[in-house]
Simulated scan of single mutants.
Amino acid sequence: MEGKEILKDLSNFSAVSGSEFQLHEKLENIFKDLVDEIKKGILGDFIAVKKGEGENRLKVLLTAHADEIGLMVTDIDDRGFVHFTNVGGVDPKTLPAQEVIIHGKEKVFGVIGAKPPHVLTDKDRKKSIKIDEMVIDCGMTRDELEKLISVGDFITVKRHSIGLLGDFITGKALDNRSGIMVLYECAKELKNIKHSCDVYFAATSLEERGLLGIKTTAYEVSPDIGIVVDVTFADKYADSDIQIECGKGVEITIGPNIHPELSEKLIKIADEYAIPYTIDVSPASTGTETWNLQICQEGIPTLLVSIPIRYMHTSTEVVNYKDIIRAARLLVLFISSLKDWGDIYA
């Protein structure tokens, strides 16, 4: 299965924050022939280790969070309607009329309903709809539902990832299954070349709930260098401050959350090998796992490489697979250039 098809498969699979362990089997299948060791963490993180050559090897951690945003059952009312809340940054206005799957004892399908426009008052029409004003209609009674689902069950939008023209792909959870595919493509290339570093490919947990899972992963690996791969906004049509677009390269972040010598070396490599990129200047938090990774243990030098996507945190995110390949190539070249800290501070 080629990379695009693997990404579609990962997009179609559901793993809301707190249920990342459900991805483990799929991740093991795609990484097992590329690495030397696989570990599975208590909080649902997945780590694939590719050993380097020589002694006193640097440990490089590449991370991409495995979890996705979603919903959770809070109540089943007397009419058989399911009430719910959000898990992560769900935009309520994207929810009405969506097909959903409730992940209970078995999958239960339903649709999210809301008041039809015909019965809305003028005042209501000017308001943004709230999650507590919506319900899920499964066409079942309360008694029937309670045999299949429970309060606390996760809910995801029912969406099938598809290819668009060229190298574009749309689907849910491309934030951050796209990042996982960067790790996969990187591991695929590193299998065929010599490198000095031990490389830890980590699909981390609970990012959408406050950048939490990276903390335990960092303690488990204790890396010398941490590189976070995530997605970034490519909706240039909607915001003139957005500089990057899908299909035109990767984003490299600089700022106090990022190690200056590491970022300088990464940018030099991108220039040397003509890998298109945009610089993101981030004076404070990057909003990614680098924020917590940097201050784990005694401090971990960090980098952030981002893949541009459109319509983030919707069920129709769009990514260009060429950008995934570019990010992976940049990381392969960076990792293969490292032998010790002298390569950074030279």
Results as ranks from 00 to 15, higher is better:
residue 202 A to H: 00
residue 268 K to W: 02
residue 243 Q to H: 10
residue 291 W to F: 14
residue 220 E to R: 12
residue 269 I to E: 06
residue 229 V to Q: 04
residue 283 P to I: 02
residue 266 L to H: 07
residue 228 V to E: 03
residue 297 Q to M: 15
residue 210 G to Q: 05
residue 234 A to Y: 09
residue 267 I to M: 08
residue 245 E to H: 01
residue 236 K to L: 09
residue 233 F to Q: 09
residue 215 K to E: 08
residue 229 V to H: 03
residue 234 A to F: 05
residue 294 Q to S: 14
residue 214 I to D: 05
residue 272 E to N: 07
residue 303 L to H: 11
residue 239 D to A: 01
residue 264 E to V: 04
residue 283 P to F: 06
residue 303 L to S: 12
residue 255 G to Q: 10
residue 301 P to F: 12
residue 248 K to P: 03
residue 210 G to L: 08
residue 219 Y to I: 09
residue 270 A to D: 06
residue 276 P to A: 01
residue 255 G to P: 00
residue 282 S to H: 00
residue 211 L to N: 08
residue 288 T to F: 13
residue 201 F to W: 10
residue 301 P to N: 10
residue 203 A to D: 10
residue 234 A to P: 10
residue 290 T to H: 07
residue 207 E to Q: 13
residue 207 E to P: 03
residue 261 E to D: 13
residue 243 Q to P: 02
residue 225 I to L: 01
residue 248 K to N: 13
residue 240 S to W: 05
residue 304 L to G: 07
residue 296 C to V: 14
residue 244 I to E: 09
residue 254 I to E: 12
residue 255 G to A: 12
residue 245 E to L: 03
residue 286 T to Y: 06
residue 297 Q to Y: 07
residue 225 I to F: 06
residue 223 P to E: 02
residue 287 G to C: 13
residue 235 D to W: 05
residue 303 L to C: 13
residue 231 V to S: 01
residue 219 Y to C: 11
residue 208 E to P: 13
residue 226 G to I: 04
residue 213 G to Y: 00
residue 215 K to A: 03
residue 259 H to F: 02
residue 228 V to D: 12
residue 293 L to C: 02
residue 240 S to E: 15
residue 225 I to W: 04
residue 229 V to I: 15
residue 267 I to Q: 05
residue 232 T to R: 11
residue 211 L to S: 01
residue 264 E to P: 01
residue 284 A to W: 06
residue 235 D to Q: 05
residue 215 K to L: 10
residue 244 I to D: 02
residue 239 D to Y: 03
residue 258 I to T: 05
residue 217 T to D: 09
residue 203 A to W: 09
residue 265 K to N: 07
residue 237 Y to N: 08
residue 212 L to Q: 13
residue 284 A to D: 10
residue 211 L to C: 02
residue 230 D to G: 02
residue 262 L to K: 09
residue 295 I to V: 15
residue 295 I to A: 00
residue 221 V to Y: 06
residue 225 I to R: 08
residue 287 G to K: 12
residue 267 I to N: 05
residue 264 E to Y: 05
residue 265 K to F: 03
residue 227 I to Y: 03
residue 282 S to N: 10
residue 213 G to K: 00
residue 294 Q to R: 15
residue 290 T to V: 15
residue 228 V to I: 15
residue 288 T to S: 15
residue 278 T to N: 11
residue 271 D to L: 07
residue 289 E to C: 09
residue 233 F to D: 15
residue 227 I to P: 07
residue 286 T to N: 00
residue 251 E to I: 00
residue 285 S to W: 08
residue 253 T to C: 14
residue 250 V to W: 03
residue 206 L to D: 03
residue 270 A to T: 06
residue 297 Q to A: 14
residue 224 D to T: 08
residue 264 E to H: 11
residue 269 I to L: 04
residue 215 K to I: 11
residue 283 P to V: 00
residue 285 S to I: 01
